[in-house]
Design a binder for these strands. Structure first.
Length: 852
RNA sequence: GCCGAAGUGGUGGAAUUGGUAGACACGCAGGUCUCAAAAACCUGUGGCCUCAUAAGCCGUGACGGUUCGAUUCCGUCCUUCGGCACCA
């Protein structure tokens, strides 16, 4: 069998029978929606990672189809993006043309690799008929107040004169932030940007996870990314100054231990200080603020070791202890988290401790720690005799070290509250609520929740993206374009270089920019920023369901049929952003009634696929010269060998290195298996059909059971191992295998090796029976799984010492099995002179005799 | 630092709810075929002790625990990988 002939023959056949893999919207079968992340069609073609992932999805989809499900297994193109834009600039070609060439190349490669996608549902994010709906979603977000324009600092490349997204900024060897394209050092610039309020959905995005079956890793990553913290906001009055500072804290129970405050350099409070402090102090402050502004986010978080800061010259009043505490400015406090100001409790927080240590600020504990080793020293140091007159002052870090010596510089804030007035004797975290109640009752502060997740910066100053469908009128302000005018089509232009002032290339195109205000009819301008890459990929799985609909995203009837996605296969790199963004957009669409009410989450299960490393155990890269090109491998060994090897390499989620020797093992297997089956078929044609023996039935049924279960849990490597086992067990018995069972063996191969299976099937099946991929998956016949005689291990005190044979009639007769075990020849030496104190029989598996 | 996953032969990896650890494959060794090599096929292959494929001992990162029995459950620790990270 020459695989080249076989492949071209069946490719042609499949091409002529497009209904084979077509998902029917109207069908009596139960549905399954199998989704693989759609690729970015780059110029270098489909790589081995795609091949691996898509094969994983394809095996599953083919299996489910044969199991009798109506399977939706679609494919499309996430084609907006920088590489194409850059290539367009370099080669002076239209991105539209480049995209078309690349998607055509990808598609033909995918067909060759026998992926059973339903091509009638192909989507492309760069198709105006598609991005009409990406824009429509943005308009809905705007209408619901979830999209707004704001001044935002961005990364600016002075050489390319372009704004860069965070993912387009690289870190150089010297620790500087540089432009991905040209290597120039990136600056910070403040530009007005569209922002989407994903923070409004933070709680829903956490709660929704309960309705999914994502693995813990993914759930944890999402929860971690959202970063919800519950605590309180507390207001601090300032001495001799008519201002207040509000802080957010997750530990209001340590309020008595707050011995100073710190505000972020970008805090509004700092800007007002010029008038209040003035002169020398102000220039000191101003210097510090300027210094920290120069630092990038990375530098600010990189230099964790050494804290910097400046005193404002002001004092705040601790609202519970009434003490005067210093107010400092430091960039370890973030301007965009919480209130941008903190109360510092150095006794119970590492960062506050570090700061207090450096600037010799007082330290005072508020919690009597539960697990403190050096309790006596700690106690006498802090509370000694001072407690009684209520004059306990904080101590500086130097004093702390001197007296306490070996204990940790700060202590876990778990235990009994001390030195805190009314709260003394309460235990935290148990009495956390009591503290919050007390604080709210006294009007000092209130319960509050904060998130790490920030609103989503939605503007990009690039050409190759969806135009943001907004219009600005000097008089009437921002307005969305009329929905009937969608899509706002990306104009085809000659040059894609950015403008002098960092605006999107679209800004140069007057006929695009100039338009009429929808309110007053006067002169207005279109937004020229485009959307980020995520925008098109947030909702593509909905479009597959109804790809040509011009009136809605997808019709409800079909959404109800197909959603949610049963299994979503993708990479770990998309477990946070893409998954979160698309869940957010889906939840939003749910809120506005664009998706069915009974389906609140888009994805039921998420599987993260593994990574294929080069033969040198390194990530594949052109510079390392360790890239494996799927087409080359397929040309040399055949598509089926490539597919099967990829699935056999290791667990689907794992990281595995390419190894051509192991591939040879798979090739040998596939050849032997085919040869054996073909030979058996030839013999069958002359012989009278007879049924397989029970021994053979056992092998066949065990294999059917094992392969099915393994595919269902994405354990493809063991599924293939079971086919190999079957082949090894049948190697000298193939002639005794019945026709029906030979058919089953071919069917079991079909999801992994679609060409070979098709060829084997055609070797004897009538043409009217059609493709092997339309056949019913073999059923397990339980009655054949029962073995006449099976072996039961016999252990003494848990160690296996012998084995006995038990017939199936005696399997349930515990007394008889135990008797056989005790009387076993080998057991005698183990039992002599011992007393059996206990006997355990695990049905059909083992006996354990406990002796003394 | 926090969160998550994982540590099993020479290698990739099996062992689905606690029940015969090492399935399957690679590699290696020996053999068949061959003038020879490659390919193909057959046999063996965790370590120790052995003439022995007799019996035994050790063995799933380390140490303890629960159990008749632990790769699997619990505790402490070590290591690796992935995510987040001055988030109050």
């Amino acid at each position: 069998m020459d695989f080249r002939e076989v492949e071209s023959k069946w490719q042609k056949f499949w091409e002529e029978h497009p209904d084979l893999y077509k998902a029917q919207n109207v069908s009596s079968r139960e549905k399954k929606y199998v989704l693989v992340e759609f690729p970015y069609p780059s110029g270098s073609g489909l790589h081995i990672g795609h091949t691996f992932t898509f094969t994983g999805g394809d095996v599953y989809a083919r299996y489910l189809r044969m199991k009798g499900f109506e399977v939706l297994f679609p494919m499309g193109w996430d084609a907006f993006g920088l590489p194409t834009e850059n290539y367009a600039i370099k080669t002076k070609q239209k991105p539209q043309k480049i995209t078309k060439e690349n998607t055509e190349m990808y598609k033909s490669q995918m067909k060759k690799l026998a992926f059973s996608f339903d091509w009638s549902r192909e989507v492309n994010t760069t198709d105006p008929a598609y991005y009409k709906w990406t824009q429509w979603i943005f308009v809905q977000l705007y209408k619901k107040g979830l999209a707004y324009k704001q001044e935002m600092p961005i990364n600016w490349c002075p050489s390319c004169r372009i704004g860069l997204a965070n993912e387009e900024v690289l870190q150089s060897k010297t620790g500087k932030n540089v432009c991905e394209r040209c290597g120039a050092e990136v600056e910070r610039r403040t530009i007005s940007q569209w922002v989407v309020k994903i923070t409004d959905y933070a709680d829903r995005l956490i709660e929704g996870l309960e309705k999914t079956d994502f693995i813990d890793k993914v759930k944890a990553a999402q929860i971690n990314w959202i970063g919800k913290s519950e605590g309180a906001r507390v207001k601090f009055k300032i001495k001799n100054y008519d201002e207040e500072l509000e802080v957010f804290t997750t530990r209001p129970d340590t309020l008595f231990g707050a011995t100073f405050m710190v505000v972020a350099p970008e805090h509004l409070f700092v800007k007002k200080l010029k008038e209040r402090v003035g002169g020398k102090k102000w220039s000191e402050i101003e210097n510090y603020v300027l210094e920290s502004k120069k630092k990038s986010d990375l530098e600010r978080t990189d230099l964790v070791k050494e804290k910097t800061g400046v005193w404002t010259g002001l004092h705040a009043i601790n609202p519970v202890s009434r003490e005067e505490i210093e107010i400092w400015i430091s960039d370890f406090v973030l301007g965009n988290y919480g209130t941008g100001a903190i109360m510092a409790v150095p006794a119970h927080d590492q960062r506050d401790w570090d700061f207090a240590k450096k600037f010799r600020l007082p330290i005072r504990p508020a919690i009597y720690p539960k697990n403190l080793k050096n309790l006596n020293k700690f106690m006498s140091f802090y509370w000694g005799g001072d407690m009684e007159d209520g004059q306990e002052d904080g101590a500086t870090a130097d004093e702390f070290y001197h007296v306490v010596g070996t204990i940790k510089p700060y202590v876990e804030a778990v235990g009994e509250i001390w030195g805190s007035g009314d709260w003394n004797g309460w235990e935290v975290p148990r009495d956390f609520d009591k503290v919050l109640d007390w604080i709210e009752k006294k009007g000092i502060g209130e319960r509050s929740t904060t998130y790490h997740i920030r609103d989503w910066i939605f503007s990009r100053q690039h050409y190759w993206g969806e135009p943001i469908p907004m219009i600005y009128c000097e008089k009437c302000g921002w307005q969305p374009v009329d929905e009937s005018d969608l899509p706002i089509v990306l104009p085809e232009v000659e040059a894609y270089e950015p403008t002098e002032d960092g605006q999107s290339p679209l800004a140069k195109i007057e006929e695009f920019v100039n338009c009429k205000c929808l309110v007053c009819g006067g002169e207005a301008k279109r937004e020229t920023d485009t959307m980020p890459n995520w925008a098109g990929s947030d909702w593509y799985f909905l479009r597959y369901i109804d790809p040509n609909n011009d009136t809605v995203i997808a019709r409800e009837e079909w959404l109800k049929k197909w959603m949610p996605v049963d299994v979503y296969i993708g990479g770990d790199e998309h477990n946070t952003l893409h998954l979160l963004y698309s869940r957010f957009i889906y939840q939003f669409l749910w809120d506005i009634g664009s998706v069915p009410k009974e389906i609140p989450e888009p994805y039921y299960k998420r599987i993260s696929h593994g990574v294929i490393l080069g033969p040198d155990n390194q990530r594949m890269s052109k510079s390392k010269g360790n890239v494996i090109v799927p087409e080359t491998v397929a040309d040399k060994y055949g598509v089926d060998v490539l597919r099967m090897y990829l699935m056999f390499m290791g667990p689907f989620e794992g990281t595995m290195a390419w190894n051509e020797k192991t591939l040879m093992g798979v090739k040998r297997f596939l050849e032997k298996y085919s040869k054996n089956i073909l030979k058996a078929i030839d013999n069958k044609q002359s012989n009278v059909e007879s049924d397989s023996s029970n021994k053979i039935k056992l092998i066949i049924n065990k294999t059917i059971k094992g392969v099915s279960e393994d595919i269902e849990r994405f354990s493809y490597n063991t599924a293939i191992a079971k086919l190999m086992e079957a082949n090894n067990a049948l190697v000298d018995k193939y002639n005794e295998v019945s026709k029906e069972d030979l058919r089953s063996l071919i069917k079991l191969l079909a999801p992994f090796a679609p060409y070979t299976a098709e060829e084997l099937w055609a070797y004897w099946a009538k043409a009217s029976e059609g493709s092997v991929h339309q056949q019913q998956w073999p059923e397990v016949e339980e009655k054949y799984l029962i073995e006449d005689i099976f072996r039961v291990a016999v252990a003494v005190n848990g160690k296996v010492r012998s084995e006995i044979e038990v017939s199936s009639e005696d399997e349930n007769d515990e007394q008889k099995v135990l008797l056989l075990a005790r009387e076993d020849e080998k057991m005698k030496s183990w039992l002599v002179g011992k007393e059996i104190v206990r006997e355990i029989y695990v049905k059909g598996k083992m006996v354990n005799l406990v002796v003394k």
